[in-house]
Design a protein around this nucleic acid. Structure first.
Lengths: 268, 268
DNA sequence: CGACTAGTTGAGGCCAGTCAATGTTGGTGG
DNA sequence: CCACCAACATTGACTGGCCTCAACTAGTCG
């Protein structure tokens, strides 16, 4: 089953990352060495969605110098855990991660679902310790952005400074929307919002917005949406029954995004 | 009924702001002119809790130059509304505000409850428009901090830069905790968290942490906690019945904070 | 093949929502 | 000062949506 429109050159389809690495975009760019691809914002396909968005060539070079090694994660590896000292932000180059917050009583909840181009670790700045855990949902690669050096560079590059502020602020807005979802929406609405939100994010990254593969289990989705896994499963089934979507395990196809939008805001 | 320990000199007790202005701290500080009190971080009692925390005298002077007028709000006035262009952050000097987010379908939810020393408006940076509405819960005064000038100054004052980042990041952490609350806690636990959180914030500001006056209605508290006003009311009554708290309208006294903490994390 | 994890589906229970009646408080004007 | 009103709060009876518990299926991996 093909699940994503092939977008930006050199970017493996998220559907099957390991396979894609071998087949998909292999013969693409012999002009640029692998070394370059690994370490430079200037040549990164996520450049405009990332911290480097809108920067000029000269400024990009300065960021290139700042970006540390890439880190590769296998599925289920954690990038960082709650309580660990905070040193860097991470830009997702490839793959996806979930972040989970831990309550004192041990309760754990998924607080975010992050994909390529996203910046994670922002909640560690305030306390100098990571406030949550980040776990790879598939094989994943991230760029390490040492925060002290970001702050340093931000002082001389206003565009970078503003980008950083925007990323922080947008994370706050995003969280407010999730609070709205958790505080006042019924289960049906929550799943509809979730599916449409993913669609939009895939769209912005050049992938299909109507057909994608979930990287989370029903339980993780439930945790994110404040629901139990059985409820999530039942909702998927019901949405399929009424022709809103087509589900096959984690493969989702939105058959009627408009109707999905209409679910949001409906009483009873 | 006296409800708050008198703390920092020159700061009216939150219990009765208008009365306090006349009686409470009137004969306190004839050394500093009213004009100074109005416009300078250097002499503000919330200095250390605010953006100016940890700055040296010289740096404080630079912030003083940046801080625009104070704005006075009467109860129910909005400081800003969702969708309005974003120009400035606001530091609360006196009083308190709620922020509310609006869903597309018109649903509204309280997303925050802010008191003196807090900075609000952070979610407007990302989109250049305010993402929520801020409404005064009582007579309130805020300092206007034009954001462009903050960014400018932050480039030359690393301590301010870092403070700003910390404020943004802490807001994210705070939101994650609320998400945890909304997504996985029972009604009892939510109210316990709410009451203890307020206690802690009052404590940090030098007020009593066991006796305070709520500035929100039951409905607003419910909206914040993802509950209906009747549920909030019932919980207050139940908490009182079992001797956890004493409630009289909006006046709350925590009789057994330890037991309140134990409620959090309990099943069933 | 068995063990394990992920997902689906059903039956029943409970927590919080809904609807409704009543009580309380605070501000306003006569 | 009191009467009045509106907003806020309390309490009860009932309902329903989601959770819990449980059985079963499908796919994966050693």
């Amino acid at each position: 089953m093909t699940l994503n429109a092939k977008p930006l050159p050199g970017t493996p389809a998220p559907a099957a990352p390991s396979a894609a690495r071998a087949s998909g975009a292999a013969p693409a760019a012999p002009v640029i060495s692998l070394r370059d691809l690994k370490t430079h914002c200037s040549t990164c396909s996520m450049r405009e969605l990332c911290l480097s968005g809108g920067l000029n060539t000269d400024e990009l070079k300065q960021i290139d110098a700042l970006v540390g090694n890439r880190t590769k994660l296998k599925k289920n590896d954690s990038l960082y855990r709650a309580g660990e000292p905070f040193h860097a932000l991470y830009a997702i180059r490839l793959g996806s991660l979930k972040t989970t917050v831990l309550a004192e009583d041990g309760r754990e909840q998924v607080s975010g679902y992050h994909m390529l181009g996203d910046i994670i670790g922002l909640d560690g700045i305030g306390t100098d310790r990571h406030g949550c855990q980040a776990v790879a949902l598939e094989d994943t690669e991230v760029c390490v952005l040492p925060f002290e050096r970001i702050e340093e560079l931000a002082r001389s590059v206003p565009a970078l400074q503003h980008n950083l502020h925007q990323f922080l602020s947008k994370e706050i807005s995003r969280d407010h929307n999730i609070m709205l979802l958790l505080g006042s929406m019924r289960a049906e609405e929550r799943l509809a919002v979730f599916l449409l939100n993913l669609a939009e994010r895939y769209r912005r990254r050049g992938y299909s917005s109507t057909e994608y593969v979930l990287r989370m289990t029903r339980e993780e989705i439930g945790s994110y949406l404040g629901l139990k896994l059985e409820t999530v499963s039942r909702l998927f089934s019901r949405f399929q029954e009424v022709g809103l979507i087509q589900v096959q395990g984690r493969a989702v196809k939105l058959l009627d995004p408009g109707a999905l939008k209409q679910i949001i805001g409906q009483r009873g």
